[in-house]
Nucleic acid binder design. Structure first.
Lengths: 229, 229
DNA sequence: CATGACGATTGACCTAGGTCAATGCATAAT
DNA sequence: ATTATGCATTGACCTAGGTCAATCGTCATG
């Protein structure tokens, strides 16, 4: 089963704890939209904690297409992989909007780990989480049916307890083009799926915004779960 | 760029070191082909080191299709994720052939980690490796062109220094059906790609075996690299 | 207001590859 | 030897969805 953390915000204590430990070494820095933090293959980089903004982790295929692995949002800590196993960054990182971060150079991180082994445990948990998310990505990209992908993606964006909340409004945290890429589909396909959902009354577009009003959440869940018949 | 470790054998010191540390706690066990080591969602399991055999890590989609995430071979250590972050196993594990393993129950692993923090570092390296491989999977499944996938998969199975070795023989380590699933394609598509490669003289079938003779390695590399023109 | 620019949307088209079904080819079982 | 079983292969078919191109909105700029 997919846990469907499509967008990544730091949820809980792990990130907090990590930040507390690392704080003394973190340096504030502002990244203009479009800035590359590092490229796939780079061996030198930094550990980053996002204060506000969004960073996209992606790969470029030989034919030039890019595939988005993650979109990281406020509070997420990342960029530590090369420190852990010595191998280069496995993907590119780019700020998709103006982004404020706290950053720490390679050397400092190694110091901290030596001094405080607990940091290692925290990193392990981060890695585990990433790995689980990667599995979800694989599943997402392998399962067929764009409609399904879109529906489940929308569901994952619903605010907290969607028991029968009044405000069943979904806000895309990204331009739909980028969102589509995160789902491994084209913007056109994304749009078509939205149109289909709108036509059958499951959701309603809110023109001029990246928002949708959910009319029939039960139906949306059905579509997401591939209930064929 | 993909590192293309399609099949996973323990390559280097990490696994050795891990095994040395864990040895006292490991119990030999034999798994008949088809045995499930654990299911996705299980919270209780074990850490496993393969002595001989193969284990498939896979997920089942809601529609019943299964997607193969890894095939682990001799020497690989795996199954530790739930211990690290407390969450359940993210996928199923099944022996695909009769397999001899050394296994360690959950409780023991926790003890060892407490006693010897270095183990944590080793686990980190394992996790990093897995994560990188997962990215490769994502890339593999996202890139289009079955021919490309098959060609690069075959290349990754070539024995060591394929400078201009005499024996350019590729042996599929799995029935082609399973191999196809690892590539995220159907057995039929796999077969078709092989046929195409054979027709153009790039490889030659060796009937009755899971083997192929590579005639034109340069060409094979070109195909793998998507060199369109 | 007019113009441009950028993204979302829609339509028309086309193809890669999944599905289903038939056939072949081996080894295993009787 | 003969049948049975299981997988690989091939063929025919069909569709999801990628690609390309045209249109439409919306917002920013002069």
């Amino acid at each position: 089963m997919m846990s469907s953390d499509l967008l990544h915000y730091a949820s809980y204590d792990i990130a907090q704890e990590a930040k507390r430990l690392l704080e003394p070494y973190l340096m504030p820095r502002t990244l203009k939209a479009g800035t590359l933090l590092w490229r796939e293959g780079d061996t030198d980089g930094m550990l980053v904690s996002i204060v506000s903004g969004k960073v996209k982790i992606f790969r470029i295929l030989p034919d030039g297409k890019e595939i988005t692995l993650y979109i990281f949002g406020d509070g997420v800590v990342f960029g530590f992989m090369p420190f852990l196993d010595g191998a280069p960054y496995p993907a590119n990182a780019q700020a998709v909007v103006d982004t404020d971060v706290l950053a720490m150079p390679r050397s400092s991180l190694l110091q901290v780990i030596k001094k405080n082994p607990d940091v290692a445990l925290i990193l392990i948990q981060h890695l585990s989480k990433r790995l689980r998310e990667a599995f979800d990505q694989i599943e997402r990209r392998s399962s067929r049916g764009t409609l399904t992908k879109v529906a489940s993606a929308l569901l994952s964006l619903l605010p907290e307890g969607h028991g029968q909340r009044a405000g069943l409004i979904i806000t895309l945290p990204l331009p739909s083009r980028d969102f589509a890429s995160l789902l491994g589909i084209t913007p056109e396909s994304f749009s078509r799926s939205i149109t289909k959902l709108a036509e059958e009354g499951t959701i309603e577009r809110m023109p001029g915004t990246n928002r949708f009003h959910v009319q029939d959440i039960k139906r949306l869940e059905d579509v997401a779960n591939l209930i064929v018949l």
